[in-house]
């Protein structure tokens, strides 16, 4: 774990604002009302869902035969993947 940067005076500040952490710490998954669930029996690995995800929240898992997996920490549940899937193997279920 990186130690948090803690300036003591104005002299420690950089000349320009520095962004030091990616937005992945932002758990946008809590926005979700409907949860996409992939049926791996029907999935043909066409990667159309991966291609159209506006949040880059569908990842290709290299180790497991390049299957697609949904990153539930960041998926906002927009359902574009379910709508665009040609074999309709993604279904949206209400979050409990």
């Amino acid at each position: 774990m990186k130690k948090r940067w803690d300036p003591k005076s104005y002299k420690d500040l950089p000349y320009t604002p520095i962004m030091d952490r990616p937005t992945t710490h932002n758990k946008t998954g809590v926005w979700r009302t409907f949860r996409p669930i992939i049926d791996y029996e029907k999935c043909t690995k066409c990667y159309i869902c991966w291609k159209f995800c506006p949040d880059a929240a569908i990842i290709i898992v290299e180790e497991e035969d390049r299957k697609v997996e949904i990153d539930y920490d960041h998926c906002k549940g927009c359902a574009v993947c379910a709508e665009e899937c040609p074999v309709k193997c993604i279904k949206m279920e209400r979050e409990r």
Partner: peptide, 29 residues
């Protein structure tokens, strides 16, 4: 083994605060 039709390298991080189904986010990606 499936292949993707566009480059796989991802330079946009998930977790940005665009609305659901944002076209602008997709354009940047």
């Amino acid at each position: 083994m499936g292949k993707t039709t566009i480059p796989e390298e991802e330079l946009m991080h998930p977790g940005h605060i665009a609305c659901l189904g944002c076209g602008g986010g997709l354009a940047m990606r």
